[in-house]
């Protein structure tokens, strides 16, 4: 049995189609990521999965239970962490946790082992009001509350958005720990580099899925050799690369510009052309396409949907 099976899920809000005919399945125990920018439809899709809104069309089941008709039973199995912090700000850390445990008819003690690695870190502040916690601590408390009833699936809506690079790393390490406990995790993020930490990912943009696969397979699906070109004057390099005929799709990536070269041309040819435009000593190295390279490529393939 699949942890999640979604068939042609569609959600309309008035004239806007937030989720457009999305089909996917998640296996039990899988760490499955939805990668896409704001407005892609991630939150809407997650709210449907968490039995909070009823889809305009399509069918979704979690562990064989229908998100619309079996929502009462299903809620016992779901741990949901919404994108916006939504615990009780004027209850303390411990009171919040107690509250969630009680709602689900359990106690903190009963499932303590599950939350221990996470909760331990905020336990020294258990008498502090949730509203006075730092961002990183709020995130840990929210995750503890989502876990306290020992759900079979965690639905985490952008848990790392706006969080610094170190806290994000720590958060993903916690998820890997939970995965070992056998919990299925569905998580969304706008940070493409985090995709590599998932078993499988779905790339989502403007309500539609652009691809589903393992991060590795998504990267290799790029299918062409990619080169990283760098030069101290990055902006001039980018503008020059755009004008050079044998270069396709130059995109800045950190300290380099990623490009592909037309068939039958080599880095030496590019270097010569760069020299001609007055850019001397550029470095051209082969590089592996990342998730973001593929995402950009997929966005290019649908030019009619691009924002400008």
């Amino acid at each position: 049995m699949k942890a999640v099976e979604a068939n042609s899920i569609t959600q309309r809000f008035g004239k806007i189609t937030a989720v457009d005919d999305i089909t996917f399945a998640v296996s039990e125990g899988e760490l499955f990521g939805f990668i896409g920018p704001d407005g892609a439809g991630k939150t809407t899709l997650f709210r449907i999965a968490a039995t909070l809104i009823i889809p305009s069309g399509g069918r979704m089941t979690l562990f064989g239970l229908n998100v619309v008709s079996d929502y009462r039973e299903l809620r016992n199995h779901i741990g949901y962490m919404p994108g916006r912090f939504s615990l009780y700000q004027d209850l303390t850390v411990e009171e919040n946790l107690q509250f969630y445990a009680t709602i689900f008819g359990t106690t903190i003690r009963e499932n303590y082992h599950l939350i221990e690695p996470i909760y331990k870190q905020i336990e020294p502040f258990r008498e502090r009001r949730a509203g006075n916690l730092s961002g990183g601590m709020k995130q840990k408390l929210a995750l503890s509350c989502a876990l306290i009833h020992k759900p079979r699936i965690l639905i985490l809506d952008e848990p790392t958005t706006g969080v610094d690079a170190v806290s994000r790393t720590e958060f993903w390490e916690m998820l890997e720990g939970l995965k070992k406990e056998g919990i299925t995790i569905v998580v969304s993020t706008p940070y493409m580099d985090e995709a590599l930490r998932c078993d499988r990912i779905a790339l989502i943009q403007q309500g539609r899925l652009m691809g589903i696969d393992t991060p590795e397979a998504i990267r290799t699906s790029y299918g062409r050799k990619m080169w990283a070109v760098s030069h101290p004057d990055r902006y001039r390099l980018l503008l020059a690369l755009r004008e050079i005929q044998i270069v396709s799709n130059p995109e800045p990536f950190g300290e380099a510009v990623h490009i592909t070269l037309h068939e039958g041309t080599a880095p030496e040819d590019l270097n010569r052309k760069l020299e001609n435009t007055g850019i001397h000593g550029a470095t051209i190295k082969e590089t592996l396409p990342g998730i973001e390279d593929v995402f950009l490529e997929l966005m290019r393939r649908k030019p009619e949907e691009k924002s400008l």
């Binding site: 896409g36 920018p37 704001d38 892609a40 952008e158 958005t161 706006g162 706008p190 493409m192 943009q205 995109e251 800045p252 973001e292 995402f295 950009l296 966005m299 691009k306 924002s307 400008l308």
Partner: peptide, 16 residues
């Protein structure tokens, strides 16, 4: 202050 948070990769590059 975090001008590109949650923005798609194409817009993010145009923004820069």
């Amino acid at each position: 202050d975090e001008p590109t948070s949650g923005v798609d990769p194409v817009t993010r590059r145009q923004f820069w």
